[in-house]
Simulated scan of single mutants.
Amino acid sequence: MGTLLTAQNIFGVIFIVIALVQFYFARNYARTIKQQGTTGPQTFAPMTTWLNYVSSIIFLVIGLSLIFGSLSH
């Protein structure tokens, strides 16, 4: 039980939660743009959506590597 609550595991879980929230926001933004659009120009909408997806994947990889990676032991 003592090795379960290490700082690396706690930060790993935090990064995974951030990744899931970021993915949810990206998906919600993409749906909103697709259904309703915006009143202003959508120049940065595709780039914003893809950067949100990429950042969620990066957070997920960091979180999983903190929990299961070589740094965890």
Rank of each mutant, 00 (worst) to 15 (best):
G40E: 15
F44Q: 09
N52Y: 12
F44Y: 12
P46K: 07
F25R: 12
L71E: 01
L64V: 11
L66A: 09
Y53C: 03
F11W: 10
F68W: 08
V13T: 08
S70M: 05
Q22C: 11
N9L: 03
G2S: 14
I33G: 00
G63V: 01
P41V: 13
L20N: 05
I57R: 08
A7M: 11
F44L: 12
A26H: 04
I14W: 07
I58A: 15
I67Q: 02
I10S: 07
M47F: 11
T32V: 08
M47Q: 13
S56H: 05
T48C: 00
I67W: 00
G37R: 01
M47R: 09
Q35D: 10
I62H: 01
Q35F: 10
T48P: 00
H73R: 10
L51Y: 13
T43C: 03
Q8S: 09
I18Q: 05
Y29A: 08
F25T: 07
T6Q: 08
Q35L: 09
P41G: 13
V13K: 03
F11T: 11
L71R: 06
H73E: 10
M1N: 13
L71S: 06
T38V: 10
L5A: 12
F23A: 09
W50C: 03
N28G: 02
I14K: 02
I67N: 04
M47G: 07
I33N: 06
I67K: 01
T39G: 09
L4Y: 08
A19S: 13
I18G: 02
N28A: 11
G69K: 02
I57Y: 13
H73S: 12
F15T: 01
R27G: 10
R31F: 07
P41R: 15
V21G: 07
P41N: 15
T32F: 14
T39V: 10
L64D: 05
S72F: 04
N9V: 04
I62P: 01
Q35G: 02
T48E: 01
A26E: 02
A26P: 00
T6W: 04
S70D: 12
I18C: 11
H73P: 08
Q8G: 04
S72W: 00
G63A: 02
R31H: 09
F15R: 02
A19W: 06
F11E: 07
I67S: 02
I14G: 05
T49Y: 05
L64Q: 05
